[in-house]
Each structure stands twice: as C-alpha cells, then as structure tokens.
Amino acid sequence: MNIAVLLRVVPDPVEELELSSGGTDLDRDFLGFVVNEFDEHALEEALLLKEEAGGSVTAFALGTADEVTQMLHTALAKGAASAIKLGDGLDPLDAHAQAELFAEAVKGGSFDAVLCGVQASDELDGQVAMLLAARLGLPHVSVVVGVRPADGGLRVTKEYWAGITAEFRVDLPVVLGVQAARQPPRYVAVAKIREAQQSGALQEIDVTAPMSASGLRVTAMRIPETAEGAEMITGDEIAAADRIAELIREAR
C-alpha cells in the first residue's frame, strides 16, 4: 500500500497566544509550533498499515517554521520512506489553499490512501483532509479510529458520539481524516532524528502559488473572556471545600 500522509504544525496549545498589532492574526514572532496531534495519529496509522500490508509511506508538509523540517525528519526516522516539503515560504495558508497544494503533490504519486489528521486548531475555512478529497473526487471518511486492509480496499471505523462507531468498506484510493491511531504515536529516539537530518533524504519541491482562497476575511480576533460566567470561590482548600459542599447540597 502506498500511503501519503499530510502533516501540519499548529501553534503550541500550551503557549499563551498573543494577537498581532493589527488584531486580525496571531503574533507569529515568538510563536512556538508543534505537530498537529491528529496528524501524528495519521502518520502512526499509516506506518502501522504499511507494517501490516507492505508498501511505503510518504510524508508531505508545507510551511516555513523550523518545526516543519523537524517534523519531516521525525517522520523519516519513524519509518516513512520519503518526506517532501512543498515550497519554500508559504504560510500561513488557509485550508482551501493547502488542500490545493497537497492535492497537486499527491495526484501524481499513485497513492492508495491519503491519511491526514481529522482537524487542526487553525482550520478556519474547513478541514484540509476533506477539502482535498472533494478536490480529487475521492471517497472519504473522517473521524477515523480504526483502519484495516480488507480485500483490496480498507475497512474503516468512524466514531460518532456516545461511543457509537460505524464500519465502512471503502475502495482505494481513499482519503481518511484520522482521529486516533490504533495505538499512541510511537516514540523515536532523538539520535535517529539526527541521523535522518544528516542523511539528506528530505526533498523539497517547488510549487506554484495556490489559486484557491477561503473566500473569508478576518475582521477581528480576540481572546474570549474566561471565567465571566463562573463565580470564583476564594480562599484555601478548606474554605473551598466548605463552599462547594454547600453548593452541592443546595443543588440537589
């Protein structure tokens, strides 16, 4: 099975986010990025599929942040056969534009499956995975929690709510928006990532600037007021325990 995996970085959720002076974007100067958690699951599931059914995994990414190249080297260290960086200075891009670029890159590769994280925290105008599927006219399933090869195609488990899941059988090629791999994403030793860095296996290909746009215009961004609803209890744990016990009694 030849599998393409789309990888993205997103602002580190742990960091405190600040807005730029214009107020319509994040202040990107000191922003730290991390690999989109769901994309890591997509990579893990792709690697597991490859280990199960044979074939190879190719990782794609775009963006200028240092974390992007490191992410691709990590993918190589984990077992991706090749890692491809699209372009050299394209960000931030909206989801439609990303889907266009990824679609171009993936089209010629005769891939059996394209795996991507089901969502990313900065996708304002839709999910890249599903937009890519729509662009390429491929069958698609999102919120995938299980994938297994099944007579020439894939058996895919999709998660609804309340713990209910549905199983589908899909023909190849297919696009999957992965929610969770069957096991947590594997760890790869830093030494191996260094090796991948030194091996020079990372490829960079030029891409033409995308034509698509989101069709949206951001007019304002703000940090929502938190704790506006909650009445905060002050004091130490003893005072808090008193008050909470009282509240619980009243509520019942």
Binding site: S121, D122, L124, R217, T219, A220, M221, R222
Partner: peptide, 17 residues
C-alpha cells in the same frame, strides 16, 4: 464568529460573497 485554537481565540469573519 468562530473559535479557533482549541477555543482560545474568537474570530470574526466577513463573507464578502
């Protein structure tokens, strides 16, 4: 209006079309 970055940022958008 929508919420990005795991609910940390609120965004207002216009839809020109």
């Amino acid at each position: 209006t929508c919420r990005l970055y795991a609910g940390k940022i609120e965004v207002d958008v216009d839809v020109p079309g």
